[in-house]
Amino acid sequence: MEYSELIFKIIFVIAVFAVSLLIAMYSTYAERKIAAFMQDRIGPDRAGPFGILQPLADGVKMFMKEEIIPSHADKVLFILGPSLMMLTACMTGVVIPWGNSLIINGQEYIMQITDVNIGILYIFAVVSIGVYGIMIGGWASNNKYSLLGAIRATSQMISYELAMGMAIISLVMMTGTLSLREIVLQQPGAHWNVFYQPLGFLIFLVCAFAETNRTPFDLPECETELVGGYHTEYSSMKLGFYLFAEYINMFISSAVIATLYFGGFNMPFVAGLGLSHNTLAVLGVVFFFAKIFFFIFFFMWVRWTIPRFRYDQLMNLGWKVMIPLSIVNLLLTGLVLLWRNGLFHF
C-alpha cells in the first residue's frame, strides 16, 4: 500500500467513525423530535436554537450520573457487556461503501475503509457478536428482568437472522458476489435491487427491525413487563453505551439496506449530465446519506406508529411467516435464474 493511500485510509477511518457517532447522536434528537411531531407536540427546544444542543446536554447528563455496579453483579462481565455492544456497533461501518472512488493526482482512492470480498458475511458476523453484548450484560446484572430481556433479545435475533440470511442468499444468488462494493456497482442509475427482489427487501427490512430491537420488535427492552429489559441495572455511561449502540446499529442497518437494495451511492438521472468523476463521487455520497436518512426516519416513523408485538406473535411471525416466505423467495430467485440462463424449459 502506498504512503498517500495509507494517509487517506486513516483519515477516512476517522471520518467514518466520527460521522457514525455524530449521526447516532443526532438520531436521538431526531427520534425525540419526530416522536413529538407525530404526537402533535414540538419536542425538545430549550437547549440551543430548536433544541439542537439537546444531544450534548443528554450526553453530559449521562456522564454526570452516578456510576452504579450492583454488588451482586459480575463486575468484569458487567463492564464487558456495553463495551462489546459499542465495539460491534462501530465495527460494522468498515465494509460499507460510502461512495465511489475519488481521483486525486491521478490516483484512485476508494471511499470505503476496506473492500472485503465477503463484506456481507462480515457484517452478519459482527452484528451477531452484538447479541453477546446484550446477553453478557443481562447475565452479569444478576437480575431476573435483565436476564429475561437478554434471553428475549437472543432468541429474537437468532430467529430473525435465519430469515434475513435467506433473503440475503437470494440477493447474492442474483448478484453473484459477496462484496458490497461490487453489489453497489451492479446497480447503476436506478437499476436498484429492490425492483428485482421486492419480497427479499421486505423480509430484510422486517428482520432489520428485529435485529436492531426497534418497535414493533423491541421486546428485549419492553418497559411494561421487564422494567428496562437487559439494561435495567445499568446506569450512567454504560447505559449510555447501550442506548447509543442501538442508534449506531440503526444507522448501519439503514446504510446496509440502502447499499443492498437501493443502489448505495448510485443515483438516477445523472449519467447524462457529463459531470466529472469526482463531482459524481461526492454527489453519490450525498445521495447515499439521503437514502440512509430516509431509512432512519422510516425506522422512527414505524416506531411511533405501531405498538409492539406480543412475544408469541413475534415468534410466530419469525418462524411461521418470515422463514417460509424467505424460502419461497429463495426458490423463486433460483427458478428465475435458471430460466434466464436457459437451463430450464417449460
Partner: peptide
C-alpha cells in the same frame, strides 16, 4: 397507521 402518523407530522 403510518399514513395517519405522517399526517400528524
Amino acid at each position: 397507521g403510518m399514513m395517519i402518523t405522517l399526517r400528524h407530522l
